[in-house]
Design a protein around this nucleic acid. Structure first.
Lengths: 226, 226, 226, 226
DNA sequence: GATGAATGAGGATTCATTCAT
DNA sequence: AATGAATGAATCCTCATTCAT
């Protein structure tokens, strides 16, 4: 029915379509994601989710099978979107490797800023790893991304844009880790720099811009300088 | 007795001594830290901790008051150690700013590698922040570190070692975020690179060396290149 | 659903209807009342109640929220019945003030004999007062009763049936206190008078008759003699 | 040692001497009595008592054996004093039966006002009876008192002071019940009559005077009127 | 398809007491 | 004689889930 056993089909990768959920299910996913991010998986009860989402408690088991399955669904749902972007950027033949990398950074930051809850949640789960059946999902997604980035780096090196000896894993760690940490520490940043009075929207824009500029400059540095 | 009202004494900062716990208390702290890191705060029951630590369940409330207070104690305990290192490095007059920065990176990585559980735990709590009374503790520690790093950067700039326009917050985010993400994703790294057969000790050394080399090179890049 | 925000509605006093509980809830109330009376509130565990009532432990929290709320519900439930009787007696225009008072005494004794558990419980709570949120409930009920009795006494005085200078508070204390003490000490009474072999039913009838005769005679004495 | 198996020795009744406790033990008794009265036996923890009394937790078990034994000790201690008074009044040959009865009422009220905590506690335990080993103690004390009162009534009847057909049990119930209820409901009384601003000492005097006058008048009525 | 009622399992904590000192 | 440390048992309550409707 709405249960997907195997998430990604290599052969049909381009056509990978995120599973379809009805409105109520999406509402549950959004609410759960937000609450899981804010209070942790175990710290959030299905009652909390049901109440916040304005639905019946039994609906969660009814729609997703269990609380565990719900978080798996959240990850499957969110991750299924991520790949498409990178994929389309990589395959764009009209721009240089450097430009591609910049686009990827921008796109990553954009996605993360828009889905902060999910990325917070992922930061938690990365640590708790293997308790819920998510690690496999993350592994697949991550290695897929790694492959693409590697290909891109190779392309850049071939074109003479990038230097040799680039450690993709650490490069990714820098992009993901720096972004995550910066976003997750935004409360510290706001308080430390006395930006409490800034409108939230403006503050988010500021973070995004700072982070984007910084990361792209950093990547340039890493990728080109000897 | 073992309760600390105020953690850091500015005036007596050099002499700040971590609170003293007896052996059993330390055993609880270590076990709890490990389990919290592995299963999350809410995902870990006091029964789990007691059983794993080989002590009576009631001892946790007896020694720390509550599960909540226990995690606070863990943070207070671990954080109280961190500062000293940075402080002593900064105040070393015999080495250049560049060398100081390298020492700080090394010392951070070293500490993190040795206390992976705590850093995993902190990664979780950074997200859940403000549920337990830890954010204040982290804020204090973090801003203290920021101040010292800022001072160091200023010193480096004054000495002509570092370039202008360095964003300390993002620099820190890179060090902490990259390290954290790399460590937290070590299982991915191992699997992705088929290193399952490598001895754990060797693997840890490998991670540490790679990370250290990378981060120091990265910092050099950020701090010196225009 | 079964939560009552405001117990007594002055305007609609005649129509005050006790809250409606389903059969299982009433079963819990009865059992809890009996056990609280016998072993005290704190001396009774929710396990005891659940076991005795033949229901699941969780049902008590499920239906009443907590053990505390349960005892509040018991009081609200029992007290909501009491007023009606006095009210209807007072407003009966066909009988003298003396007869009214006799009816009130009879009705009080009758109610108390039938709900000995509750009156025992109330005797305990009167002492512990203010720990559970019951004092307010009792205050309201008691002052309402006081008002009615005062009115009745005034009526009796106006009609020349009762003497002047009657202290309503002490009059009430005599009725309630004597009855309570007599009932609560019935075990002593039975043993002291060697009535162990008397059928329980007969014994209860005996108590009721003795108490009724005595109290009515006493009231006559108090209300009429100079 | 400090354990008394059998409290009252009939033969040596006149010489009955309350058990001797050292200062710390008396401190515990007083504190426990107060807390038991305020929060109930089960509602009071030995920790509460120890903390309030400023003594070590283990002392309670050490001195009294257990919490249960402590409350037994309280009852034994307080009850052992009560009898003496009645006894001496009864045996006074210089005053009439009526005067004796008045003295007994006065003495009872006086004792109760001075030991409100204990009387509150007794009101609770009367209901919970037979859980702690106190009922026997109370039975003995009560029947002893009953005997004396009966003797006094017989004396009054013989002397023509009192009427025939007096139910001693109900007479006692009136004295004890009315007093208890009046005292236990003093908060209601204060609030109902807007006496919150009266000094506590004055309020207590008021209660005592009202109660004394009322009860003695009531007793006269019961004992003399036909 | 959707849900209110119900429940067994397990949560953290507090309890009175004991024991070594 | 006195006590701080320690503990097994029991506390109330919440949990995710199920089931009859």
């Amino acid at each position: 029915m709405f249960k997907i056993k195997r998430l990604f089909n290599f052969a049909a990768m381009i056509e990978v379509r995120p599973m379809e959920y009805n409105e109520k299910q999406l509402q549950i996913i959004d609410t759960a994601e937000r609450l899981f991010a804010a209070k942790g998986f175990e710290g959030t009860s299905v009652r909390d989710i049901a109440q916040e989402a304005g639905i019946n408690i039994a609906m969660i088991s009814y729609y997703f099978g269990s609380k565990e399955k719900l978080i798996e669904a959240i990850f499957a749902y969110r991750i299924s979107y991520t790949r498409l972007t990178i994929f389309s950027v990589i395959n764009d033949n009209d721009i240089s490797a450097t430009e591609k990398m910049e686009k990827i950074v921008d796109s990553y930051i954009d996605k993360m800023m828009k889905n902060q809850c999910f990325y917070r949640l992922m930061a938690q789960e990365r640590s708790i790893l293997d308790i819920h059946n998510i690690s496999e999902l993350i592994y697949e997604s991550k290695s897929k991304n790694m492959e693409m980035i590697k290909k891109l780096i190779a392309e850049g090196q071939k074109r003479g844009e990038f230097r040799k000896n680039i450690d993709t894993a650490l490069l990714m760690a820098t992009m993901i880790g720096t972004s995550n940490h910066f976003i997750v520490s935004q409360d510290f940043y706001k308080r430390y720099n006395n930006l409490k009075d800034m409108a939230e929207e403006d503050f988010q824009k500021l973070l995004k811009k700072k982070l984007g500029t910084y990361l792209k400059s950093l990547f340039k540095s890493i990728l080109t300088h000897e």
